[in-house]
Amino acid sequence: MRYTLVLALISLSAAAGAQEWEDRQLFNEGGGDSALRIISSTDTNLFAPLIETFVTRNPDVAVEYLVTGTADIDRRFRASPGDFDIAISSAMDLQLKLANDGFALPLEDIEHPAWAEWRKSLFAFTSEPAAIVVNREAFDGHPIPQSRQELIEALRARPEIFHDRIGTYDVRRSGLGYLFATQDARASETFWRLMEVMGALDARLYSSSSQMIEDLSNGTIIVAYNVLGSYAEPRAARDDVLEIVLPSDFPTTMMRTALVSQETTQAGAAEAFIQFLVSYQWEDDGEARTLPPLSEEDAIERATIGLEPALLAFLDTLKRDKFLTEWENALIQD
């Protein structure tokens, strides 16, 4: 499928050049009058195979894939919803708020289980747990922590090893990080004690999972908390010093969601893409995928974050300010 993949480096002469993207790729260039513009937080390498399959089945549709952070997606999409046809993000709360605020186009024809969709306009297509990823070498002779409590104990036991060598999301900059943190805080007080311990060890703060995994691989950090397991797995497979731990106390599981812009000019192609996306990611078909499929089992057994209006609570400005203040107090100890 090489021929469909056109690596389009950001052209400075292009009109959109004023906006900066983490990555930008055009698939099936010239396949349609105008490309289906997808704004997404998912790394291109994970999403590209899916788009390639889609354009192979729909040769008259071109896809422009734009990658940026979850908070940035929300900001850009709200600013100009007409510029994008589809928004894909791992920040479920921000996506739900977009749909709640009327930015999403309802797609009545898409059959999807009720727990994995909201108002027929927001569709979940993956089940991805937040993981603790550790460098095995750092735990040589010590048990690898299997829960948050064990992690706290391990960090406290050898502060000299872990000082400046643990990482987690900067919840102020990352929408997904904020979602994981708020859900953790809601579930247990252990989260706050962990944050305090990490703060005391001068934890490094990241705005994306991939950066954290990058730093884990090159040895900058040896423990990363609340990393996306799906991002860590390919790296852990190659680099056997990395071990992915799903916390046994309460694994927080996120569902990646997609919505079609209310102001899309290509409703047909966008709906076809969503239809393709949810059926491609449905757990029952045996295809090999780069993204974890949507799993009903996970939704029941693990603490999967539900698509419900409660997600709006932590997005409230007052509540967010309060949460961030507490978080900063815990983690950033000057």
Partner: peptide
């Protein structure tokens, strides 16, 4: 004044038709 919106306040507004909340 501080107002820490309870999660449950929105949780209880979940409906079968996924009603929007403002």
């Amino acid at each position: 004044v501080e107002l820490d919106l309870p999660y449950s306040a929105f949780s209880m507004l979940s409906t079968s038709a996924d009603d929007r909340v403002f």
